[in-house]
Design a protein around this nucleic acid. Sequence first.
DNA 1: AATGAATGAGTATTCATTCAT
DNA 2: GATGAATGAATACTCATTCAT
Lengths: 201, 201, 201, 201
Amino acid sequence: MKNTVNHEKNDKHEQILRAAIKTFARKGFYNTRISDIAKEANVADGTIYLYFKNKDILLVSLFEESMNQIIQMVNERLSSITDPIEQLRAFIKIHFELIKKDKFLAEVISVELRQSNKFIKEYKNIKFKEYLNIISGIIRDAQAKGLVAKHLMPGIIKRMVFGALDELTLIWVLAGDSKYSIEKLCKDAAEVLINGIAIKK
Amino acid sequence: MKNTVNHEKNDKHEQILRAAIKTFARKGFYNTRISDIAKEANVADGTIYLYFKNKDILLVSLFEESMNQIIQMVNERLSSITDPIEQLRAFIKIHFELIKKDKFLAEVISVELRQSNKFIKEYKNIKFKEYLNIISGIIRDAQAKGLVAKHLMPGIIKRMVFGALDELTLIWVLAGDSKYSIEKLCKDAAEVLINGIAIKK
Amino acid sequence: MKNTVNHEKNDKHEQILRAAIKTFARKGFYNTRISDIAKEANVADGTIYLYFKNKDILLVSLFEESMNQIIQMVNERLSSITDPIEQLRAFIKIHFELIKKDKFLAEVISVELRQSNKFIKEYKNIKFKEYLNIISGIIRDAQAKGLVAKHLMPGIIKRMVFGALDELTLIWVLAGDSKYSIEKLCKDAAEVLINGIAIKK
Amino acid sequence: MKNTVNHEKNDKHEQILRAAIKTFARKGFYNTRISDIAKEANVADGTIYLYFKNKDILLVSLFEESMNQIIQMVNERLSSITDPIEQLRAFIKIHFELIKKDKFLAEVISVELRQSNKFIKEYKNIKFKEYLNIISGIIRDAQAKGLVAKHLMPGIIKRMVFGALDELTLIWVLAGDSKYSIEKLCKDAAEVLINGIAIKK
DNA sequence: AATGAATGAGTATTCATTCAT
DNA sequence: GATGAATGAATACTCATTCAT
């Protein structure tokens, strides 16, 4: 989030996006007023419309821009790993690192993504699919290397992996008093998911 | 809701609930108008308020009543199985059977549940927790019988299982042209999840 | 109120009227629901419409029937008095007696009469005018007998008298803990009003 | 309401208040729609809510602000008069002057005040009590100077005076074709009320 | 670019009234 | 006559969006 290339002092765009994330996380998309975001961002209501066409687009932009950064970072980190199983483990690790780094964003993505995919008109969340396809890419590679059974369909596995991680995200993010540490969640998730798909030697 | 005994086919309560499920599935909770539901249910707008206090409560009731039926059915079906691993397999099977039987309901639960948990004031989805606890109960039993490693926390596993199943629900329910059959989803899910947690012999 | 000629045991008409008076007094005409009155009267909502065309007519009937009884009683009591000044004194006395006897009715008449006169469509409160004209009749008689100055217009005086009495009604009726006794109000009112119009000897 | 200094002729606050007075006078509080007021004020419906929290508060503000001006003006005018009897006469005169100057306001205050006192939640019309207390103040002064009998209670007299004046207000304000001139009403009222309470020499 | 006052379309909910039983 | 479930018209209020400054 912080590794963006915006070096403007007065970066309203970023300012509004952060305020939107925080407010959507707290109140949800439909219960958030543009004026709530404006207040949080310390700008006038109208200013938001100078940077984002409307409320829907604000949420969409938030997804797009966040996913962009995440995807870039994930790809970078994975590029130095060759074993697909280790790549999957790393993917899971990075997922939880990101959640820890930006709880609000994690909450917005986890809670609002489904709704928006379906109900924000004309929106196909390409970036989200790209994120999911990192997983299926790893699976395919693993299958090619004989590490994962060929009959498991990568399109299904990627969703199961994401679903499992996303649900764990939720419990960490929604519980103020996290019963489970990020590290434990990460460790168990990696163990179960890798055991689940890897061919046993 | 009503203190009358509803044995009529023309049960307004049921009629409205079905209409709500269908409409929430199609348009989402926040984009559904009470008048949409009324039209779908072939009743007047005001009639809905004779059976449900308000729109929030309508969604909540929908969850409660549906989960009640589901939980009862799942428990019944699982009661005749003793091997916890087979119970888990059966649980997964039933999950997909239910989805197939009531696509609209599956969609509403999968898409709206998260939002409602957090944003419908004062709502603690006890029934949903009860559903999740069926899974953790199975896991605990399996651990007691030495079938699942003790260090895996049932509270985490239940969420991973649900998350994975729920995400698969989504792809089947949202894709008009299901690329994957329910049966394939069920089979892969069971395989991966059981492999993931079961101790390898 | 109690001297009506209804000797039916199950007099719904009277029952509803009493419930309406009580409820209008407590909540005001516009804030009273037909169902409130029905509940108070221990009848079904629909039953009210068997006795009164609609909510407006219920208020109107309430005025008409109450004023009828009041006028009849006042006329009866005044008929045995010949001195117009004493008649006025008696009128004032009776006014307060009535208030004391039926506080709820007094409150409804005092608080709702103005609104209804103006805003209930097509309603000309003839009975209320008849009540006022008792006062102007007394004044005219007094003027004929040289007890009240001729230049005072009975149409004005009747209103002043009513306005003064009505305002005192209000303070007694609205104050749960009446600071002033009915008797004191009555005595002062009679003194001031009679002194105000009678020619000093 | 607004923290801006309103010195413009085109003051929305004032504009809305005037429109509200006119519309409440014509149709009554409960029969007036916010959109009626908006139309009369030549603003959008929503604009009203920028200046007044809700419909109840609009009526309350109308009372408060009007009574404030009235009280200030009355006190000013009375301050130059020393004889309490003449003060009372002046008070009555001013009352009718105000009615003549703003018929709509007079009508709203006279017709809606009672209702609002009782049925607008949490509203204690302090300003109205302040207005009434001008009268009782005069009476007390007159009693101290031996001009009014001590046994008459100022708390009762103030109400009688107000009731009488208010009722006369009504007949002038409601009658399109005023049978009685303001001047005649004023003269008779002053004569009767002063005769009514002053000790005869 | 930034503001925030003004707009007015949009909707949940209420409640007087009806009418089948 | 009595009921009360059903109706649906009516409306206060909200809030995304615009635009004059």
